[in-house]
Nucleic acid binder design. Structure first.
Length: 636
RNA sequence: GGUCCGGUAGCUCAACUGGAUAGAGCUUCUGCCUUCUAAGCAGAAGGUUACAGGUUCGAGUCCUGUCCGGAUCACCA
């Protein structure tokens, strides 16, 4: 905003005139004045004492005197130690609001000719989406919108993991135990497939136990033991804390052998592996089952994505990309970036970069995860030609993406520097980590639907929907529920892992999405009344206004920062910046709203100003909430 | 064990990238609806920023070490 620029220029000028010193404008930073002090903006003079060769108070005083005299916007100043607090003239805030009203592009930065790809969601087609996916999807979707607002050309892609041994597991279980079950209204496709993934695990565990029992006979140390798994657990637990006895050591070794054998030889696992081989060989029957079940899952996902309000421009499927990357391995060998070991496996040595050696191709010539990701990276670039590539993936893959970026840099890919892993922390439950195989997950669909029910209850309690139609009420519940959920997940720094307690439903009071939506709805009601009463609150009506309350001035100052906040959040890929911004704006507005009369205000200029301020606040809230993927209601 | 990430009020989180007396919300307590939506506003209470050093005018923020939690170090994806 040019207010700050003007003041910064004024400060450099002051340094020149008062101290005959050159200070670069880029070295001068202003910060908002803390609440307890008088003023709007503060300049910290400590770093410039070398230049002024005077005491902090004297320096600040001298600069303040100069600024008050030469910069129109500055009405007054005060000095506290080395802090020069500047009081901005109220007229500036009135003008600022006026320029926001007139700014058709408010909240959209100038376009730049730069393409960014955001990859997010990336589900597996063997189980439904869960709470962790919600964080991922909301993050990716929000970052896409923020980058778009910041002027980038954004492509949203979803790389679906639709093949592999885990997919075969649910296929096999369905084949064995499914009895031809079909998706239904009560069990959508992704949930149905997920159910058989759990079934597989149950059967697998039972077989392991059985095999282990058979194998137990060969070990004297395990004679008479009833529950092998239980014993293994208790010894492992003990081993972490204290020394084991000789018998226990012998037992744990025996147990490891027994279970390794059982886990590898369980018939149902061998069958699944066989199925994967058939799939790779293109076996018709297997492919048909795979297509059918994946189709169910995609239908289920589509419903979930619609419910969540996220979307994609392009889908990549791993079944189509998993063979890619082998040519890059060849290229890397030629360029000397990779090297081959005796067993023919191919590696990259990253010890110079503080990492170790990493496998990029197996000895038998088959691909690993890294091989595929290299290939996919090239494919994406070929398809979309982007400068930046954001991967929204959990922090468990920090190492993988560090390596991927390094490799692509070493291979000289133009897009390599633009690779960014937007790493986020896991969502944990009070009981610990979510494990889909063990059924301890918070399902995404269930959670959203529960939130919608809660929203309905709260709304009815508050008696807010007297003249809503059934459809309007339903739409409102959904908006409130998703708003609460998205805001809750996005206001936090993505890197931090977070605890989610399903028993305590997400708040509807205080620092929440609902609070922000409420302010928007309140303003819309106010604007409807202004229109009904035919009140003119155009900029001419308040142009000459000289008197503002502190809260009004603060609110205008906050509204003026929207653009800065968008660039900041785009640079850091941080939706939390926007979430905090809309909350700040809402809080400031609440104060203004509570303290200031609007329709009862006699002074027409003040009344017009307050209505216009309300209107622009609603505008900022709507823009900001849209950036974090949250809708705002006009009534609630 | 190596590497990376985190640790701020009882709880959930901020802190403009080194600035002033570390701020919000939840919870608890006290006020405020015969005038614009009380899903709100005003106030009270709550802190050795895990710990110990260091850097400097100034440290939650930077450096070193320690402790706690998590992730990762697979020819799994």
């Amino acid at each position: 905003m040019d207010l700050e620029k003007k003041i910064v220029q004024g400060i450099t000028e002051a340094f020149k005139k008062v101290y005959e010193a050159d200070v670069a404008e880029s070295d001068i930073a202003l910060q908002p004045t803390k609440k307890d002090f008088d003023g709007d903006l503060t300049f910290v003079v400590f770093p410039f004492l070398r230049v002024s060769k005077a005491k902090p108070e004297a320096t600040a005083e001298a600069l303040g005197v100069y600024l008050k005299e030469h910069v129109d916007a500055i009405a007054d100043f005060n000095v506290v130690k080395g802090f020069l607090n500047l009081v901005i003239d109220n007229g500036v805030w009135v003008d600022t609001l006026k320029s926001i009203v007139e700014d058709k592009q408010y909240g959209a930065l100038t376009r730049r000719d730069e393409r960014v790809m955001v990859e997010y969601s990336s589900p597996n087609t063997n189980k439904p989406l869960h709470l962790g996916h919600l964080r991922n999807n909301f993050l990716g979707h929000s970052v896409s919108r923020i980058l778009d607002a910041a002027g980038y050309d954004v492509t949203k892609v979803n790389l679906v993991n639709d093949r592999g041994i885990h997919i075969c597991k649910s296929m096999l279980a369905y084949q064995l135990f499914g009895n031809g079950e079909q998706p239904s209204a009560s069990l959508k496709g992704d949930h149905l497939v997920g159910k058989y993934y759990v079934e597989f695990d149950k059967a697998y565990k039972a077989q392991i136990e059985e095999l282990a029992k058979e194998k137990q006979a060969g070990y004297t140390s395990l004679e008479g033991v009833e529950d092998l798994a239980d014993l293994k657990k208790s010894i492992e637990k003990k081993g972490k804390k204290e020394e084991l006895t000789d018998l226990e050591k012998e037992q744990i070794n025996a147990l490891k052998e027994v279970f390794t054998y059982a886990e590898k030889q369980a018939p149902i696992l061998l069958q699944a592996q066989d199925m994967l081989r058939k799939w790779e060989a293109g076996d018709e029957e297997t492919i048909a089952l795979w297509s059918k079940m994946n189709g169910w899952v995609y239908e289920g996902f589509d419903q979930s994505y619609r419910l969540m309000g996220v979307e994609f421009d392009h889908m990549y499927r791993e079944s189509e990309t998993y063979l890619l990357g082998k040519d890059i391995v060849e290229e890397g060998l030629e360029k000397g970036v990779f090297f081959k070991k005796e067993d023919n496996s191919v590696w990259v040595d990253l010890s110079e970069d503080g990492l170790d050696e990493k496998l990029v191709l197996r000895g038998d010539g088959t691909a690993v995860y890294m091989t595929q990701d290299m290939g996919t990276a090239d494919l994406k670039y070929k398809d979309f030609n982007m400068e930046k590539s954001i991967y929204v993936v959990g922090n468990e893959q920090d190492y993988h993406f560090k390596v991927l970026k390094l490799i692509m840099q070493k291979l000289g890919r133009s897009y390599a520097d633009g690779i960014y892993h937007l790493s986020y922390g896991m969502v944990d439950l009070p009981s610990g980590k979510m494990k889909s195989r063990e059924g301890t997950v918070v399902d995404a669909d269930d959670l959203i639907n529960e939130m919608i029910e809660t929203a309905e209850e709260r709304t009815k309690e508050a008696g807010k929907i007297d003249n809503f139609t059934e459809d309007e009420a339903k739409a409102l519940y959904r908006i409130l529920a998703l708003g609460a959920l998205k805001y809750y997940l996005l206001k936090v720094d993505p890197r931090k892992r977070m605890l989610f307690n399903p028993k305590e439903s997400i708040d509807f009071q205080g620092d929440t999405g609902v609070y922000i939506q409420y302010n928007h709805a309140k303003i819309q009601a106010l604007l409807r009344r202004a229109e009904k009463d035919g009140i003119d609150f155009s900029t001419e009506k308040f142009a000459g206004l000289k008197e503002l309350s502190e809260h009004e001035a603060n609110l205008v100052a906050a509204l003026a920062k929207l653009g800065d906040k968008i660039s900041e959040s785009a640079e850091d890929y941080a939706p939390s910046v926007i979430a905090n911004f809309v909350y700040d704006v809402s809080r400031l507005y609440s104060k203004v709203y509570a303290e200031m009369p609007i329709f009862n205000e006699e002074d027409e200029a003040k009344r017009a100003f307050r209505i216009a301020l309300s209107q622009q606040t609603a505008r900022a809230i709507k823009i900001g909430m849209n950036l974090i993927g949250v809708e705002v209601p006009d009534r609630m």
